[in-house]
Design a protein around this nucleic acid. Structure first.
Length: 747
RNA sequence: GGGCGGUUAGCUCAGCGGUAGAGCACUGCAUUCACAUUGCAGGGGUCAUAGGUUCAAAUCCUAUACCGCCCACCA
């Protein structure tokens, strides 16, 4: 057969065309797949944040997932992979506000809630468009007919339903608590959104006043104007005689009432062994305060300035200035006995970079330790109808490998996190996001005119999708101004994308629990754990069977990609230069699950060469093989060729085993090696003599053998390099050919 | 403070009980024959260190050192 293939493979000419072919075929949707498919494979795409464009980390993620998805589709499973985007409340809020400040010199408060939300929505819409295009460029075989967005109508409904059900079960409550306040982003954040950074600081040892009997040590003396107690360890002999006593002191321009308490949380070795307890501005202290029933005095406000209850000396000052003032006051009054350098952990909000200021606030929480009765459960060790907690759901789902975490070592990290887990603060003071479906009764309820005798017992607030009315008065309800933590909606993702809360949804029944989930290890807690929590509570089942955690992609020197280093690489640029297949291989080969990988152009280049090598092998085979070569495939193979095919069979088994165990990094590398160094360098070279043979039997046998190996190689490679393999496959002289996308995985 | 990784060829990494591997880089040779985005040949490593288990250890155990990451309420 004469070939029309060009001498070199040009991905640019092929990729868009091929993707369109796939998408138009409808095969990305499981119901359109050919043949009878009994086994189900399903996965949902971890929705990328709608904050702009994709980065190489996404390329890694989609390469892994698409390879897995394509493998299962070829194996004959009813395969579904659902795309979507995350509104990423805090990230998009921050980003758009930054743009607003830069372009218009205004912050969100200057333009108001409605206008700001509109701006964010426009920004998100534009981002989503760009990202959808980029995801297609990666070759991801996603069912776009099922595309979802965490803020669309269906997902909004899911969020409100989930909130209501948790509230009704007593698992969502409102509480006045010390939370992590981000003064820069003007919102609360959860424990997981706080980063700790060690910094040099000074530890001051002092007493509140001359006649106060105990010295305390603190790195933040300015907060001491909010102290209501001094705590020491119960076994600490030095302080036992003071326990239970109370003192009134004048301290730095304010009056304090200090009670001496004994608490196990205090380390007698540190400082003086006595701690000034500031219940309003330290989560630890607030817990101590709770145990000893101590009052809470707020001395710092939302803008990290001292309140008027902080006393005349520091009122209105920034915390840092207040610290200097207090220290000076201590010196002037001869109360400061020691000042030493120490390392302190500064808490930073990981999105805005603002310094966290613990503050007491009225917030919504998910109770992770509270018991509730689970109606229906297929989670191992949790029986339907039994009492359980959200924490237990998260634990049991993973404990017996009902959910398998890859690599295994992350199980330990996961359990450790659960053991230390506190209630989840889900309210945010942001404007863009899911508004909390709670309506407050304002102003207070009073009987209607003419009904003055009614017994008024209406609720303080109502959880509802729409604005409720009060049966006792005409007062209005106003919706809670807060929005939900963005992870609340993403926690529902595996089933909100499949039709929930409609429990009769056939997608939900067919595809949930999903088979496979592939997030980065850095969101194991943020997302994976929360999905397990939500799926367990709302559906009584696990959200997925296998979690394959991938690592972070770094630059060629092993550094993180970051704006400050200016080492960012656009996936699109790589694709334009080397082709998608090369990019995919470069991020798959040699990167084991859970490990970080380095991205280098040398590697991409190597796989571009490989795509070309494969192309030329195909050219050679096509040149050497007649159009009807596959007709008599089964007949008369020379023993030597049979042996080569038998070796191929053994090789295929090994690859299949790798694929089954998600060892993509090995599978990809081994196929590469086989195609290049076994097939091309040996089999093809040795076939040249056979093809030139006078004996037609030898010649035909060689032709068939070559075609067989090429076909099998294309199938094995397709999950990794879908474009070039599909393109070559379309040229092969094979009867009843389908798209390679839906051909069967070789046995 | 607790936990988890890593330390293998110049570089980036795989291998994780049976005589050291890949890619890139390097050296030499080959070129009308599918491919120079090529082929063939080659150089280069006491697998961090010290002990131990084993017939056998890069691979298992125990320490140590250095690098990286995660968690944590030492004020």
């Amino acid at each position: 057969m004469s070939t029309e293939l060009p001498k070199a493979y040009n991905p640019k000419e092929v990729e868009d065309k091929i993707y369109k072919l796939w998408e138009d075929s409808g095969y990305f949707a499981p119901e359109n797949l050919p043949g009878i498919r009994k086994d189900i494979f399903s996965a949902v795409l971890p929705p990328p944040n709608a904050t702009g464009t994709l980065h190489l980390g996404h390329a890694l993620e989609y390469s892994i997932q698409d390879a897995v998805v394509r493998y299962h589709r070829m194996k004959g499973e009813k395969t579904l992979w659902v795309p979507g985007t995350d509104h990423a409340a805090i990230a998009t809020n921050t980003k758009v506000e930054k743009i607003l400040i830069k372009e218009e010199g205004k912050n969100r408060h200057d333009i108001g809630r409605e206008a700001f939300v509109k701006k964010v929505e426009d920004f998100v819409a534009a981002s989503r468009g760009v990202m959808q295009k980029q995801i297609r460029q990666m070759g991801a075989s996603l069912d776009w007919t099922r595309e979802a967005f965490t803020m669309d109508a269906q997902r909004n409904l899911a969020v409100r339903t989930a909130f209501k059900r948790m509230y009704d079960a007593g698992l969502i409550y409102r509480g006045y608590r010390v939370i992590n306040w981000d003064p820069k982003g003007q919102t609360s954040v959860s424990d997981d959104e706080v980063e700790h950074r060690p910094e040099k600081g000074l530890l001051y040892t002092f007493r509140y006043s001359k006649d106060f009997p105990i010295e305390i040590a603190s790195t933040r003396p300015e907060t001491k104007v909010g102290d209501t107690a001094v705590a020491a360890h119960p076994d600490d002999k030095r302080y036992q005689k003071y326990i239970g006593k109370e003192y009134d002191v004048e301290f730095a321009g304010t009056k304090l009432h200090i009670k001496i308490v004994a608490d196990e949380a205090i380390d007698p070795e540190f400082g003086t062994g006595a701690v000034g307890v500031t219940p309003a501005h330290s989560i630890t202290d607030s817990e101590i305060a709770q145990r000893h029933n101590l009052p809470m005095v707020q001395v710092i406000n939302e803008y990290a300035r001292m309140t008027d209850t902080a006393g005349s000396l520091v009122e209105g000052k920034k915390t840092k200035e207040a610290r200097e003032i207090v220290v000076r006051w201590l010196r002037d009054n001869n109360l400061l006995s020691k000042e030493e350098e120490t390392e302190v952990n500064i808490s930073i909000a990981d999105r805005s970079g603002g310094t966290i200021e613990p503050l007491p606030k009225l917030q919504w929480f998910v109770a992770v330790n509270k018991e509730f009765k689970i109606k229906k459960s297929s989670i191992s060790d949790i029986k339907s109808g039994s009492k359980t907690t959200l924490k237990e759901i998260m634990k049991k789902s993973v404990e017996n490998d009902q959910i398998k975490i890859l690599p295994d070592r992350f199980k330990k990290t996961y359990f450790h996190w659960i053991d230390n887990l506190r209630d989840w603060n889900i309210s945010r003071q942001l404007w863009y996001g899911h508004r909390i479906p709670v309506w407050h009764h304002e102003p207070k309820c009073a009987p209607r005119l003419g009904h003055e005798d009614d017994i008024v017992k209406c609720k303080e607030f109502v959880v509802s999708d729409t604005e409720p009315g009060c049966e006792f008065c005409d007062a209005k309800f106003t919706q809670d101004p807060d929005t939900l933590d963005t992870w609340f909606s993403s926690a529902l993702w595996t089933f909100s994308t499949l039709g929930w809360p409609d429990e009769k949804s056939s997608d939900l029944k067919t595809y949930h629990p999903t088979t496979f989930m592939n997030p980065g290890y850095e969101i194991l807690f943020f997302w994976v754990a929360r999905m397990i929590l939500m799926s367990g509570f709302l559906l009584g089942e696990i959200p997925f069977k296998t979690v394959y955690l991938h690592g972070i992609l770094r630059d060629a020197k092993g550094r993180k990609f970051s704006k400050s280093l200016d080492n960012g690489i656009e996936p699109t640029d790589v694709i334009n230069q080397y082709g998608t297949d090369a990019l995919r291989m470069s991020v798959l080969v040699g990167i084991a699950p859970g490990n970080d990988g380095n991205f280098g152009f040398d590697k991409v280049k190597a796989y571009k060469h490989f795509a070309n090598k494969l192309w030329n092998i195909a050219r050679f085979v096509l040149m050497s093989v007649p159009d009807d070569a596959s007709d008599t495939m089964e007949a008369c193979l020379a023993p030597e060729d049979k042996k080569i095919l038998a070796e191929l069979g053994v090789f295929v088994k090994g690859i299949t085993e790798h694929m089954e165990n998600y060892r993509l990094y090995l599978a990809a590398e081994e196929i590469y090696h086989y195609v290049w160094h076994a097939f091309a360098d040996k089999v093809v070279e040795e076939s040249k003599a056979k093809l030139a043979s006078e004996d037609p039997a030898i010649k035909i046998s060689a032709q068939r053998m070559l075609l067989e190996i090429l076909t099998t190689s294309l199938k094995l490679l397709h999950p990794f390099m879908p474009f070039v393999t599909e393109e070559i496959y379309s040229k092969l002289p094979i009867k009843n050919k389908k798209l390679l996308l839906v051909e069967s995985w070789p046995q």
